[in-house]
Amino acid sequence: MNIQIETSVQATVVRIMGSVDGMTADSLLQQLQAQIAQGSIQLVGDLSGVDYTSSAGLRTLLATVKETRRLGGDFRLAAVQPDVLKVLELSGFTSILRVFGDVDSAVASFGS
C-alpha cells in the first residue's frame, strides 16, 4: 500500500493505493492520525487506487471518521472502486460516511 498526501486550502487529500487490510491498516491509521495531529481535520480519502478492503481496513476508516468529526472536521471518501463500495455498503458504512464520485467533488463539499 502506498499513500500520497496533497494539501489544499479546503481539504487534505490522502491518496491510498493498494489494499487496506490487516497487513496495512495500522500503517494507514498512523499516517491519517499524523495528518489529524497536524491540524488537517478536513480529509478526503481518494480510494481510486484501492482494490480491496477487509474488516481491519473498515475499522481504520471508521476510526478516522470519528476522530475528524470529534474535532469538527470530516473524513470523506472519493472515487471508491465498485468492489470496495460493495463492502462499504454491505457493512452499512455508506449510511454514515459521505462518499463522492470524484476527488474534486469531495474537496469542494468542504466549502459548501
Partner: peptide, 18 residues
C-alpha cells in the same frame, strides 16, 4: 444484514473476509 455486518466488523479482533 447490513446493520449486523457493520457491527461485527467493528467488534472483531482479527479479520473478516467478505
Amino acid at each position: 444484514l447490513r446493520a449486523n455486518y457493520g457491527f461485527h466488523n467493528l467488534a472483531h479482533h482479527d479479520e473478516i473476509l467478505l
